[in-house]
Design a binder for these strands. Structure first.
Lengths: 212, 212, 212, 212
DNA sequence: AATGAATGAGTTTTCATTCAT
DNA sequence: GATGAATGAAAACTCATTCAT
């Protein structure tokens, strides 16, 4: 096969794969993985059922590829890179806002992750290895760098990264996925400044800023 | 039916129902709801398959009853009450430790909740109304009381409560439910002191204690 | 066991058996044999489920006993005997009316027979041998007697008996069992006189009476 | 979808549906509806079990479609039309013979009807409305036409139609479905001439022809 | 490459029958 | 004698996957 044709072919296949993954994401987010049939994925993608199998060998693998492709915070590396040289006092607020914006934009991904990945031991382990820990390391590295420069208190940087992300993650779960937005709404502003405030200065009186 | 016999009968049925719910909790926590069969629930309970249907009319209703019965932090009210008169500096560490202990003990419940409740909009809404918000209010009330006494910085107490719980909740998810314990273990000590430290004093240098 | 006690015991068992059969008849007539559960039979009889099995070894045998006990026209022999010496002109109308009355009274039996017996080859064969043919012979014997006395035209008496009974049987099926009573009602009077008229004189003009 | 392909597809599906209905008819006739499994229907049709569900959404609906498709006397309208201008004396014998021939050819249909339709109130009502009463009206209309022309005695034409059909129907039940053919055989000739004779002239002596 | 038709393996649910009390 | 609890065997139905076109 001539090189150009092969490249075109690959592009085409990639586009199809993406079309299917997007459809699956919408569907799984709405109905859940186990509750969705391959027929429905195909219908959502506007394709025939058997076509799905041309691009993904099984439904389970389709899910894995989905999780591979759709990161919760795909730009995390860029965000951390962008603030690498900023001290926490300015870097963390920017980071929190960036992560929160991206999480909110990607709540469908979050939905699928919560449902299908975080709760299935095997899938979760894979996710932890390939995505969660690498992401955590990025944050932790930033923290450690500024610990050394004396701008952050010394401590377990990995655990601290987990705390930061955990607060945002739980806001996402409760506000966007669990109906909190309707029942007890909190503004983005409140969320970001509370998280930032607590992470930097804590809630105890005597520390710098007012919370929220 | 004589009253005594009826009472005994009810007790017996209740015990059986509990036996089944406990078995289902273990199983769903291990394998997930959709991935578990009624056969397996029965086997785990040491009963015949049809017996399950004597006590629960369907698999779906079994799940609902399961969620009804098992709360995530059943003793939260007592814990908050116990520290009501302690200032945050001593109250929060106790609270964090108490919540964390109970969460860890109940990771099976957490597993089922994540999968079946937090991810299903309708069930999640119910859960938010009946359990999550009331719990949050308890914490928030404690925070507000100590804000008034000048021991906590002013801020959105509900959001702060969410932050505190979110950190612990995410540690539970990542350590216990997602294989983090094996892949990147963090000790209870590290977790509790990091959460406490960040919540009270933040991560910025110049604040009181060293983290973790 | 003393004789008296044994007799009492037998009477008691017989009464219980009857109680169950009556309940089963009502139930099977309403819902069909396959569609009824042993639980329902027990409930209808006001007994516990296991009690049914004290008196009948299986559900299938319960049905057989039911058919044994409940004849469609139990008094046929008496009816035929009663008109034995009456010529057809007066005997047939009496007979038709008598059979029709009994059929209508016993439409529950008819229902079960149609459903469970007439349509199951093995059961039907048994029924034909033990009940249907003997009944037909009774009618045929009456016809033959009056053929000999010149009051009925010569012909196949068995086939004639079948015709007479068939007309009534089909009226029962269509009026009582198939909703005809509501959709296109025919009075008992019309039914009996039409059957009698056709059987005795046919429908062709020039024969004696007006039909119905 | 192009029009031609769609048409071919429809034809194909229709053929498959028919293949399944034919198989189901044979099976239900032999074993009864409740006693037959979908697996068996599939095996009889030479198809896989799931294929049945491609064409019929449930076993119950398969039965309904079966009854819809297979009429007991599908050519009744043509038969009545064919003798419309013949007087009863020649028309009825032809009609009786025609109906009897068709009934015998379709005893499998009869079997299923008896068992599943005539005995289930709801289904029976539907059948009465859509099939039985229209058929009866056809016969009744013929009778009424000839009553007016003085060739049939006046009477309730609907009841008379019922009598005519009832005799034949009961012969079918008893001879073909209940083992009468083996236990007490009656020739087609006997059956038809007895029915014709009784219907036209009755059994009383003094009327025209000899019976059978 | 694209697909609808076909299907067996697997799931939930029902129910006749047994058994311990 | 009477019974409710327990259950395995069996049935309807679903769906991921394969295959012929």
């Amino acid at each position: 096969m001539p090189r150009v044709a092969a490249a075109r072919h690959d592009e085409y296949a990639e586009a199809r794969r993406d079309q299917i993954l997007q459809a699956a994401l919408r569907l799984f987010s709405r109905k859940g993985f186990a509750e969705s049939t391959v027929d429905e994925v195909a219908a959502e993608a506007g394709l025939g059922k058997a076509t799905i199998y041309l691009y993904f060998p099984s439904k389970e693998i389709l899910l894995r590829k989905l999780v591979d492709r759709f990161r919760l915070v795909p730009d995390l590396a860029e965000m951390v890179e962008a603030i690498r040289n900023q001290p926490p006092a300015s870097g963390i607020p920017a980071l929190v806002e960036g992560i929160w914006r991206q999480l909110k934009e990607r709540k469908e991904v979050a939905h699928v992750l919560v449902r299908e990945v975080f709760s299935n031991p095997e899938r979760a382990r894979l996710y932890t290895e390939q995505i969660r820990l690498p992401g955590r390391h990025l944050l932790a590295a930033y923290f450690e760098a500024w610990m050394k420069r004396g701008k952050l208190r010394r401590g377990n940087a990995e655990a601290m990264a987990q705390c930061l992300f955990g607060m945002l993650w739980y806001f996402l779960q409760s506000q966007e996925l669990m109906g909190g937005k309707d029942l007890a709404p909190l503004s983005d502003q409140t969320i970001c400044s509370t998280v930032t405030g607590i992470f930097l200065n804590g809630a105890a009186a005597g520390n710098q800023r007012t919370l929220s």
